[in-house]
């Protein structure tokens, strides 16, 4: 049971980032900047929680900061027409450099900053579900909200329409750039939540603490077959395998570097299996 409980906590940042990233994928321009959005969220979340003196305010600030950063990325990508992959790399690099610079200017270090006055994330017990950090419940609410936007609102239809055929959207007088920008802003919001969850759960900021999670979220989107339910299932599988490997660490000693390498190896293997499966499916259809 402990393994499953941990899996649900571990999967939450992946789930949030992938849910936002899914919108950008459906709008036809998958962003690889999720990692950078999360890092900005992680830094702003814990720093504003320290300044304002409230963990909840920190989470909101983290989400807002990440949205502003997403606006910068989206503006450059969709309105100045930069190559989306290069702009995504730029956003990731900028997030890494900017957080290091800000942390050096304001806290005098580029290393780990711990805020002893910042209260960690509170856990709540819910009957039948168990005891989880309240961010876990928020992530489920966000997931439902995104499902609702995508399937039940005109906005969701237009986002998907943009991904399906942006010229048709343009021909009926709507602006594809706007819907792409909106989906990136939502991704900024969810990644900001994911990032602030990472930093606030330890009341610290660690340089580059997102550690590839934004990239793994991209793979989660594909493995989830580009649907909300699929993203949920794929995140759980990831959470479970990482939780199992942590559990195994307690039984046999594995060098810590291998534990750090494990999520990457798992992700690549999952991608290969997914691609083979997709190839088979296409083969049958033809």
């Amino acid at each position: 049971m402990k393994v499953i409980h941990d899996a649900v906590s571990i999967m939450t940042p992946f789930l949030l980032a992938a849910a936002g990233g899914l919108l950008t994928e459906l709008s036809g321009t998958l962003t690889i900047a999720l990692e950078g959005f999360m890092l900005i969220g992680a830094f702003s979340g814990v720093v504003f929680a320290h300044i304002i003196g409230s963990t909840s305010a920190g989470i909101i600030a983290g989400a807002l900061a990440s949205m502003i950063f997403a606006l910068l990325y989206g503006g450059i990508t969709y309105y100045l027409k930069a190559n989306i992959f290069i702009a995504g790399l730029a956003a990731n690099l900028l997030a890494s450099g900017l957080t290091a610079m800000l942390s050096f200017s304001f806290f005098g270090t580029k290393g780990v900053i711990h805020f002893s006055d910042v209260e960690g994330l509170r856990a709540f017990h819910v009957p039948l579900l168990g005891e989880y950090s309240f961010m876990v419940y928020i992530s489920w609410a966000v997931l439902l909200l995104i499902w609702f936007i995508l399937n039940k609102t005109p906005l969701g239809m237009r986002i998907r329409g943009t991904g399906f055929d942006s010229e048709t959207i343009r021909s009926i007088g709507l602006k594809p750039e706007l819907y792409r920008l909106l989906s990136v802003l939502i991704a900024g919001f969810t990644c900001g939540l994911a990032g602030s969850m990472l930093s606030l759960s330890v009341s610290s900021f660690v340089p580059d603490m997102t550690a590839g999670r934004g990239w793994i979220a991209l793979v989660v989107i594909y493995l989830g077959n580009r649907t909300i339910a699929g993203v949920l299932a794929a995140s759980f599988v990831f959470g479970l395998s990482i939780s199992l490997s942590n559990y195994a660490q307690g039984i046999v000693t594995i060098p810590s570097d291998f534990i750090l390498a494990f999520p990457y190896i798992l992700t690549v293997s999952a991608m290969i299996i997914y691609s083979i499966w997709q190839g088979r499916k296409k083969g049958v259809k033809e």
Partner: peptide, 16 residues
């Protein structure tokens, strides 16, 4: 890290 930030600016602008 200021060099990293400048490098990010290059990325942003060079293809735009």
């Amino acid at each position: 890290e200021i060099a990293v930030v400048a490098q990010a600016v290059v990325y942003f602008l060079v293809t735009s």
